[in-house]
Amino acid sequence: MFKELYSPVQKIEFAPFNSLYVKRDDLIDPYISGNKWRKLKYILAKATAENKTHLVTFGGAYSNHLVATAAAAARSGLTATAFVRGEEVKNEMLLLCSLFGMKLIFTDREHYRHKQNLFEHYFADDTQAYFVDEGGASAEAVTGCAEVIGELTESYDHIFCAAGTGTTAAGLLKGIQQHQLNTKLHVVPVLKGAAFIGDEIAQHTKISTHFQLHLDYHFGGYAKTTPGLISFIKSFTAQTGLLLDPVYTAKMFYAIQDLQEKGTVGKDEKILAIHTGGLMGLFGMKDKF
């Protein structure tokens, strides 16, 4: 099982921000980094409590979640299988998955949509198999992500996070409510048509005035970029030394800058950005740079 790990908060000097801080979850672990560690922590605890020894999960060919699950399984004495969306490929991420002992099953996109059916078809007779949803989305993951708030030693006017499934955001909002903070949570979905994320969050905790969803920073959709976003990443990293991934964190930091320029966030208000890791996703974007 995982040992307890915590991440530091770092003040970032990057114009036009006066008071920007980053919760460096990307430093938690090189392979089970950021929110991946927080999501898997209680999933593994539950699987172990149910005497399950085989994690079965889902993701794309450049999925940080797959690498994290493979590494977590290996360190915990478990086995792992992943259904990989799309045609069979070889890349840096899947190499790591294989080295950690994960079995890969490449699956066409139509069958991939029906994850529970895939699990039941392949593992109906495997009493040791434990279903782990894509990205680790689960109530256990929400519990793990809520712990971010309890680790903070200072108060902030605003907390920002990127969102794919809404699990991390649900945990953060739950943590804000548990600690009765006045902080406002800003959630930046990284895919088109992501209004549903509000509904996903509402399944885990009460939506309140401490929550705002920003739907205009997807840059074309999941894993999509624009020259402007790539330029922003280069400038931000060169000035701060902080790496961003184009899929999640870059879109969040871009949104923070834009919302501050528009006056949605005050220039002197204290902002905390949650760096959710995922930096190996840069490998899948190397042609963009």
Score class of each variant (00 low, 15 high):
Leu279Gly: 06
Glu134Ala: 10
Leu118Gly: 13
His218Cys: 06
Pro8Asn: 13
Met285Gln: 13
Leu152His: 10
Ile28Trp: 00
Ala195Gln: 12
Met102Cys: 07
Glu269Cys: 11
Ser19Lys: 15
His204Met: 07
Asn18Arg: 15
Ala80Arg: 01
Ile230Leu: 14
Leu99Ser: 05
Lys270Leu: 07
Phe100Asn: 06
Ile271Gln: 08
Pro30Ser: 11
Gly284Ser: 14
Tyr6Arg: 12
Phe17Asp: 08
Thr276Glu: 14
Asp26Thr: 13
Ala169Leu: 08
Met252Ile: 14
Gly150Thr: 11
Leu215Gln: 15
Phe289Val: 11
Thr57Ala: 04
Thr53His: 06
Phe253Leu: 14
Glu88Asp: 03
Phe219Ser: 05
Thr107Tyr: 01
Ala250Gly: 02
Gly101His: 04
Gly278His: 11
Tyr62Leu: 05
Glu140Thr: 01
Val22Thr: 13
Lys11Trp: 10
Tyr31Thr: 04
His121Ala: 07
Phe219Ile: 10
Phe58Ile: 00
Lys36Gly: 05
Tyr21Met: 03
Ser208His: 04
Arg38Val: 01
Met102Val: 13
Ile230Ser: 08
Ile197Arg: 04
Ile176Asn: 05
Glu13Asn: 15
Tyr62Glu: 05
Tyr130Thr: 05
Ile256Arg: 02
Thr167Trp: 08
Phe100Val: 10
Gly135Ser: 14
His111Asn: 10
Leu259Glu: 12
Val188Glu: 06
Phe100Tyr: 14
Leu95Pro: 00
Met280Tyr: 12
Lys267Thr: 14
Lys11Ala: 11
Ala223Tyr: 10
Tyr6Met: 03
Ala45Arg: 13
Lys39Tyr: 15
Leu259Lys: 13
Thr209Lys: 11
His210Tyr: 09
Gln260Leu: 14
His111Tyr: 01
Val67Phe: 01
Gln212Ala: 06
Thr168Tyr: 11
Glu120Cys: 08
Thr165Phe: 12
Tyr248Cys: 01
Lys288Tyr: 12
Ala146Phe: 06
Thr53Phe: 02
Thr205Glu: 07
Asp26Asn: 06
Ser33Gln: 03
Thr48Cys: 02
Pro8Asp: 15
Ala163Gln: 09
Glu87Pro: 00
Glu92Gln: 15
Leu99Asp: 06
Val148Cys: 05
Thr225Trp: 10
His218Val: 09
Ala170Val: 08
Asp199Asn: 14
Glu151Arg: 04
Asp268Phe: 12
Leu20His: 07
Leu244Ala: 10
Tyr156Phe: 15
Asp25Ser: 09
Pro227Phe: 15
Ala80Lys: 00
Lys23Leu: 09
Asp199Thr: 13
Phe83Tyr: 11
Phe100Arg: 02
Gly135Trp: 06
Lys206Ala: 12
Pro16Tyr: 08
Gln239Tyr: 00
Met102Gln: 09
Phe236Asp: 05
Ile274Pro: 03
Trp37Val: 00
Ala74Asp: 07
Asp245Ser: 06
